[in-house]
Design a protein around this nucleic acid. Structure first.
Length: 390
RNA sequence: GGGGGUGUACUCAAGCAGUCAACGAGGGCAGACUGUAAAUCUGCUGGCCUUGUGCCUACGUAGGUGCAAAUCCUACCGCCCCCA
């Protein structure tokens, strides 16, 4: 009982439906319950904003429940309207497949292989009969769906709302029915969709579905999402150690505490220690380095984390060259190298970079587009990109 | 079905015949400052080269008028609003 209560009030969880007390009772009944978390493969990466859910799933498994990871390969082709101010352009099946490839690999970094079941919702939706879908759609009203604020936003702005976008919450809800689950885990922004599933489970299966809404990685100051794909500011579980460390360091200071709290599994006492240190005026950089270290340790390993940290300090704090850098076989003019190596997307961009004094060869600024590059040269572009010429 | 709007670069959004590769904002990149921070300030942000009052491609699609079109005309496609 204590363990369950502890779990339900853990820092990862924002809200529980129908209520904490009721859920505690349901979970204690000794029955092995089935919980699921769903993720739509809309991009190639799982990022730190997703992991809070994975931690919760892991805890559920430890408490003896069965856990399912649902890959929304069908729903991804529609797109969740949550948070969207425009109709999403539909993903093709091919794109979805491409994105899906790395998902499991990334999730296995937290949940061991075989500790959970994997399902795909295209399995039921791709061959569902219209008459069966109507039974679902009939349960809801247009008013319920349209009430959501992002739809209201769009109405105000005369922006289109696709009919299929109303289907999204219903589909997410119906997933619970098909899989006959007892509970769902998802980000707080998914609460509406998860509650739709609660209604459907009650109607179709006659039981009460538990909804566990997890905390979102939000900046406490700006209330903006910390992992923001569209603004290119996110850390993926697939990032190399260097990338991950660097990206974490580039996060604003206000993101440190949320990230430590919801994106790592360090102890609660460690969290309060961090909080105290930040409030006590310690240089946030030190704390951020610890955070970056912790994350690299989680998704790579301790040794790598140690090395990455040392390397980071060497390159950025002391301005020295990184230990290892990419190599590129080339000989010719610097503009051509920049383009050929992908450091610049076009010849024009390469020239621009040179004009902006962003390009160094062996520590010296290059001003001439035609400057020759030879084997052994070390090219630096901008503050953080290095290339060794082979 | 009738009427009125609208479609512009990664996103939002100006322009409504020449001075438009297209104002502005966001994003991105680069520079200064720094803690690789963040915030701030500055610059750049379609491509190609022979770097030029240069060429090519681009303002939903296809045509047309005209010396000249994102801007005008016609048709088509998409979207929104009002009336029925």
């Amino acid at each position: 009982m204590n363990k369950i209560k502890e779990f339900l009030s853990s820092r990862y969880i924002e809200a529980v439906f129908p209520s904490k007390e009721r859920v505690a009772e349901m979970m204690i009944a000794g029955k092995r319950l089935v919980f699921y978390w769903g993720i739509d493969p809309t991009g190639p990466n799982v990022h730190l904003g997703h992991t809070t859910n994975v931690f919760v799933m892991k805890k559920l498994a430890e408490l003896g429940h069965k856990i399912i990871l649902l890959i929304g390969d069908f729903t991804a082709t529609i797109g969740d309207p949550t948070d969207k101010e425009a109709v999403r352009k539909p993903l093709t099946e091919k794109e979805v497949k491409e994105n899906m490839k790395t998902y499991l690999e990334q999730i296995h970094k937290i949940l061991s292989k075989g500790s959970f079941e994997v399902r795909y919702n295209s399995k039921w939706y791709s061959k569902m009969f219209y008459k069966d879908w109507l039974k679902v759609a009939m349960k809801f009203t247009q008013q319920q769906m349209i009430a959501r604020d992002m739809f209201q936003e769009r109405l105000k702005k005369d922006k289109p709302i696709g009919m299929h976008e109303f289907d999204y919450p219903m589909m997410q809800g119906y997933d619970s029915v098909v899989m006959n689950v007892d509970g769902e885990v998802g980000g707080n922004d998914q609460t509406f969709n998860m509650l739709v599933g609660r209604d459907l489970v009650k109607d179709f299966l006659g039981k009460e579905k538990i909804v566990i809404a997890t905390r979102l990685l939000e900046d406490p100051v700006t209330r903006k999402k910390i992992m923001n794909k569209s603004e290119g500011q996110y850390v993926s579980l697939n990032d190399s150690a260097e990338e991950m460390f660097g990206r974490v360091m580039a996060m604003p200071d206000s993101a440190i505490l949320p990230l430590f709290s919801y994106a790592t599994e360090v102890s609660d006492s460690k969290i309060s220690e961090i909080k105290k240190r930040l409030e006590g005026g310690e240089n946030p950089m030190t704390v951020k380095k610890e955070l970056a270290f912790e994350l690299v340790k989680m998704y790579h390993d301790g040794k790598t984390a140690e090395k990455t940290k040392e390397n980071f300090e060497k390159v950025f704090s002391e301005g020295r060259l990184p230990e290892k850098m990419e190599e590129f076989k080339f000989s010719g003019k610097i503009v051509e190298l920049l383009y050929a190596s992908g450091l610049a997307g076009s010849m024009s961009e390469a020239k621009r970079l040179i004009d902006q004094k962003a390009v160094y060869i062996n520590g010296h600024i290059v001003t001439d587009w035609e400057h020759d590059v030879k084997s052994g040269d070390i090219v630096k572009v901008g503050p953080r990109r290095f290339l060794r010429i082979k």
